[in-house]
């Protein structure tokens, strides 16, 4: 007796045959495994320390989430929608979050590239990979028609000019530079938006940003 196929099971091509390759490896990207680069001894010769360098490449298989990454390459924001309850997700959820929908498989939908700032901050410090672009505005934006908020940077704005509920639109990095990751796009103020006049809080944020600009200039 043949078992009826469950339509909520995710299926991906197998074997995958990953043939269409675009490489953009920086020549500086080296995989050396374990490598000690120095040692240090305290002046009183009682303590020893050393530095270990260890790096590796990770394969990120996007699997059933691949339509999201492929969309980015194409300049499309692909989110998902639950056919039962209608919630729309970006970042995409491939199964609905509503327990009543019993892990219903969601459908891929192309999203509007406009939205509003739900909340934001002006970053003056960050992780190692992001220090040189400080200060920047990181916002949680609710795209039009979407249930959830997505975090990304707002550029083309003075950091102290960002505000709650401001309209933003998506801007893409040039097509040939896209890598299929969230950094393929960022937000910029919507065309009709004008910054509000300076006020005490904006002056305060501007003052807090000044030493950050100076500090970033000293980074190698």
């Amino acid at each position: 007796m043949s078992k009826k196929e469950n339509p909520n099971i995710h299926k991906t091509t197998s074997p995958p045959n990953m043939k269409l390759v675009k490489e953009f490896r920086d020549p500086e990207t080296k995989e050396v495994g374990f490598k000690f680069i120095d040692y240090w001894i305290s002046e009183d010769k009682t303590l020893f320390q050393t530095h270990l360098h260890y790096d590796q490449l990770y394969t990120w298989r996007m699997g059933e989430l691949s339509p999201y990454a492929l969309g980015l390459l194409d300049g499309k924001l692909m989110g998902t929608k639950c056919p039962k309850c209608g919630d729309v997700f970006f970042p995409p959820r491939v199964n609905c979050w509503n327990l009543n929908c019993k892990l219903m498989k969601t459908e891929w939908v192309e999203l509007a590239q406009t939205g509003r700032v739900h909340t934001y901050t002006v970053a003056g410090w960050s992780g190692r990979s992001s220090l040189k672009r400080l200060p920047f505005v990181l916002a949680y934006v609710v795209l039009d028609g979407v249930t959830t908020a997505i975090a990304n940077e707002i550029r083309e704005i003075k950091p102290w000019d960002a505000e709650f509920d401001m309209p933003v639109k998506v801007k893409w990095v040039p097509k040939e530079q896209r890598i299929g990751a969230i950094t393929d796009f960022y937000f910029v103020p919507a065309d009709r938006w004008e910054p509000s006049p300076m006020n005490a809080e904006k002056e305060r944020i501007k003052k807090l940003c000044e030493p950050v600009y100076e500090w970033v200039k000293t980074l190698k």
Binding site: T121, G127, S129, S130, R133, L138, I150, A151, I182, Y186
Partner: peptide, 13 residues
């Protein structure tokens, strides 16, 4: 995939 890559660390979130 979504939050760290855009420059986020916990103090920022």
């Amino acid at each position: 995939r979504y939050e760290l890559l855009v420059g986020g660390i916990y103090p920022i979130f």
